[in-house]
Simulated assay, not measured.
Amino acid sequence: MSTPTLRPVVTELRLSAFKTHSRAAFPLGPLTLFTGPSGSGKSAVLEAYAALSRLAGGEPLDEVFRDPEGCVPRHARPDAQGRRGFRIGCTVDGPVGPVRLDVAVQAEPELRVVGERMTGGGETLLETALRDPRRRTVQAAWHTAGSVAVTRAPLPDDRLATALLPLRVAGKTSGQLLALAAAEQVVIALRSVFSCDPRPELMRLPAPRGEARLRGGCENLAAVLLRTRGECARRHAALVAAVRAGCGGPVGDLVAERLDGGAVRAVLEQGALGAMPVERLGDGELRFIALALVLLTGPDVLEVDTVADVLPAQQALTVLVDGLDRCLDRRQARELLDVAARMCARGHVRLVGAVGEGTDVAAPASVVHLGG
């Protein structure tokens, strides 16, 4: 049941026509893992989610979809005007109740939004359509329920109209208030996303000191450790315990060592064996450390484009990780999933990840098998 304090979260992702997917709908829980053979579409699911997140943050289509033709299902045939495209969407639950957002994008001959619909509370709250292909706008109509049922106005065809709606609606009628609240719910949920793909080859390089927010590639992990180790001893102890379980050899602590020239590197303290810079670790151990840090920290430590005027307690962080078990052995994968399960169960974070077909998922998770 929705309550006024419920934090908005994405509960379903729809790939109506996107890459290898057609008429696909995936329910999302606190911990959702997609598994299947190579080519089954695991990465496409996460790409669609990340794209919706970036659109909700106000990014234009051409920055979000660098290869729009590659997003079109291969079986799709152009219409009489030579147009082809793709469709993605999601459902966001929160104080307003379930709100559905569906977006149709034309990839050829020009990249543009050709249709968008947001529905909730039994009403169509926002709808856009391409009326004149010669103009770079769509005709938008949003729920008003005042002296007129809807308000109409042109909006850019390269932006998500739902993200623009709070800038256009005055919020004077009950209908406007409902449309505004629904749009804000969708934007809050979609923008509270951290797409993560640790890059071991970059993590082995010294990081500039003073960077306080972790990037998606985790290349500045050492600089972030310098901050987090002093800010929260309890979370740092949990990180060290996780690293101890996931890395070979003794682990007494994980610290940041200052170098000349304003740089810093991460170091494992190994008791009698002394200190070992993490650049000597294997790719699997580096990815494990980075992902454990992501799961055990908070949105203020991650490079997340959250809604600035909404309290962090009202936003649920969602981490997207393609290849969650990449380079990890079975023990490391099991330990990392245990960390994820604990943090997701506490409501600290939500995780949507893709794992290999043979990965043993013992942790409580919603597992979606793709490819048959």
Score class of each variant (00 low, 15 high):
residue 3 T to C: 09
residue 6 L to I: 11
residue 14 R to N: 11
residue 14 R to Y: 08
residue 15 L to V: 02
residue 16 S to Y: 08
residue 19 K to C: 04
residue 21 H to C: 06
residue 23 R to Q: 13
residue 37 P to V: 15
residue 39 G to Y: 08
residue 40 S to M: 00
residue 42 K to Q: 08
residue 42 K to A: 06
residue 44 A to L: 09
residue 45 V to S: 08
residue 56 A to I: 05
residue 61 L to I: 07
residue 65 F to H: 05
residue 75 H to A: 15
residue 82 G to N: 07
residue 84 R to F: 07
residue 85 G to D: 03
residue 86 F to P: 04
residue 87 R to V: 14
residue 87 R to P: 05
residue 88 I to S: 00
residue 89 G to W: 01
residue 101 L to H: 02
residue 105 V to W: 04
residue 109 P to Y: 01
residue 109 P to F: 03
residue 112 R to P: 06
residue 112 R to F: 09
residue 117 R to L: 12
residue 124 T to E: 12
residue 130 L to W: 09
residue 132 D to M: 08
residue 137 T to S: 14
residue 138 V to R: 12
residue 145 A to K: 04
residue 150 V to E: 15
residue 153 A to H: 14
residue 156 P to G: 07
residue 157 D to F: 00
residue 158 D to R: 06
residue 159 R to H: 10
residue 160 L to S: 05
residue 168 R to F: 13
residue 169 V to P: 03
residue 173 T to N: 02
residue 176 Q to P: 02
residue 178 L to E: 03
residue 183 A to S: 07
residue 184 E to T: 14
residue 191 R to K: 06
residue 196 C to M: 11
residue 201 E to S: 15
residue 204 R to E: 12
residue 207 A to E: 08
residue 210 G to F: 07
residue 212 A to S: 14
residue 215 R to P: 10
residue 220 N to S: 03
residue 224 V to I: 02
residue 229 R to I: 11
residue 231 E to N: 11
residue 231 E to H: 11
residue 236 H to Q: 08
residue 241 A to K: 01
residue 245 A to C: 08
residue 251 V to L: 01
residue 252 G to Q: 07
residue 257 E to S: 14
residue 257 E to H: 14
residue 259 L to D: 09
residue 260 D to Y: 12
residue 261 G to Y: 07
residue 263 A to T: 13
residue 269 E to V: 13
residue 270 Q to N: 13
residue 271 G to H: 01
residue 273 L to Q: 14
residue 274 G to S: 08
residue 277 P to A: 10
residue 283 D to L: 01
residue 285 E to I: 02
residue 287 R to H: 08
residue 289 I to N: 01
residue 293 L to N: 11
residue 295 L to C: 01
residue 295 L to R: 01
residue 301 V to C: 13
residue 303 E to N: 14
residue 305 D to F: 09
residue 309 D to Y: 11
residue 309 D to P: 08
residue 311 L to G: 12
residue 313 A to P: 10
residue 315 Q to I: 00
residue 320 L to K: 05
residue 320 L to Y: 02
residue 322 D to M: 07
residue 324 L to Q: 06
residue 325 D to T: 05
residue 327 C to Q: 13
residue 330 R to M: 13
residue 332 Q to C: 01
residue 335 E to K: 03
residue 337 L to V: 00
residue 341 A to M: 06
residue 347 G to F: 00
residue 347 G to V: 02
residue 350 R to Y: 04
residue 351 L to Q: 04
residue 356 G to L: 02
residue 357 E to A: 15
residue 358 G to E: 15
residue 372 G to K: 09
residue 372 G to W: 09
